[in-house]
């Protein structure tokens, strides 16, 4: 009985952490899907969301909702500026150069935040208290429900946007074939810009809602970004359910690994299974195989 209780707790905790990874994974996938760029500065958008909210709350003394809006808006603007200054000037960029540029941007953003707000970790108060909620013998915090809720909203939002709006469809077209998209009159440049804007906003939102749980500092982005990247890869880099499942599986694996096998090796266990998945299904768990074009 005790073991069962524990396992329930492991799974619930894992799902809660997993939904954080899922949300960050989604913001990765949004950029990747319309541009083919893996944005290594994605974790920094998440960090900015948290740090800016705390700044608006504590220094500007805004109410929570306004602080969140300011944080998301500012991060979105940063995403826009980043695309304009660092991505757009590149002509004929190889994916590798884009990786290095986004790594450079992540170092830059981290450095600026460190100089502006220091190196201390900060905590954001929970949105609706910290009284634990019991679920089947395990406990959750109200903040976890916020995370679940926002993740669901973001998935629905993405679905609607990418499948039912002109801009969304245009962005998908760019990811399939840039040249063809250009030929039918889609402004590829604008779609790339769009994708950075949306992705920065989603990343910042993720950063805001997880900050009460995980706390935040200038350097939290690296780890969160890495986990989000894993989630997105597991899901086959799609901006839908696949990535979310990828995140949830990653979170649960870590939690079960820490609880049942060894807490020191939990990341190794998660990565090992990730490798196995990649070896068996090289195109990700939830994506049909594609034939390579020559």
């Amino acid at each position: 009985m005790e073991l069962l209780n524990q396992v329930t707790q492991f799974v619930i905790s894992g799902l809660a952490t997993g939904s954080i990874y899922a949300l960050i994974g989604l913001s990765f996938a949004i950029i990747f899907n319309s541009t083919g760029i893996i944005n290594f500065a994605q974790g920094e958008f998440v960090m900015l969301g948290g740090v800016l909210t705390i700044f608006s709350l504590n220094v500007l003394h805004l109410p929570l909702l306004a602080a969140i809006l300011v944080a998301v808006a500012v991060t979105t603007v940063i995403g826009l500026v980043f695309e304009r200054l660092a991505i757009r000037p590149l002509k004929n960029a190889t994916p590798l150069m884009l990786i290095i540029i986004t790594i450079g941007a992540s170092i830059l953003i981290r450095g600026l935040v460190m100089l502006l707000w220091g190196k201390d970790t900060q905590a954001l108060p929970a949105f609706s208290g910290t009284d634990p909620i019991s679920v089947a013998g395990a406990t959750l915090l109200p903040q976890h429900l916020w995370i679940f809720g926002v993740t669901v909203l973001v998935i629905i939002g993405c679905r609607l946007f990418f499948n039912h709006t002109i801009s969304g469809k245009a962005m998908r077209a760019c990811s399939f074939n840039r040249r063809a998209a250009n030929l039918v009159g889609i402004s590829v440049g604008r779609m790339v810009l769009f994708s950075f804007v949306i992705s920065a906003a989603v990343g910042a939102l993720a950063g805001v809602i997880i900050a009460p749980l995980t706390m935040t500092a200038y350097d939290v982005g690296v780890m969160l970004g890495l986990k989000g990247f894993c989630a997105a890869i597991m899901g086959g880099m799609g901006s839908g359910l696949g990535t979310v499942l990828g995140g949830l599986i990653l979170g649960t694996l870590e939690s079960l690994g820490a609880g049942l096998i060894s807490s020191g090796y939990k990341d190794a266990i998660a990565f090992f299974i990730l490798l196995l998945i990649l070896f068996i299904r090289p195109q990700g768990l939830f994506k049909k195989g594609e034939t390579e074009r020559v």
Binding site: N5, Q9, S13, I210, M215, G259, S263, K266
Partner: peptide
């Protein structure tokens, strides 16, 4: 005897084990 990573954000798994 459990450990956690310096950047980990959730230690409920380890603590649930310790609670038991």
């Amino acid at each position: 005897d459990d450990t956690y990573g310096p950047k980990d954000t959730d230690m409920t798994a380890q603590l649930a084990k310790i609670r038991g």
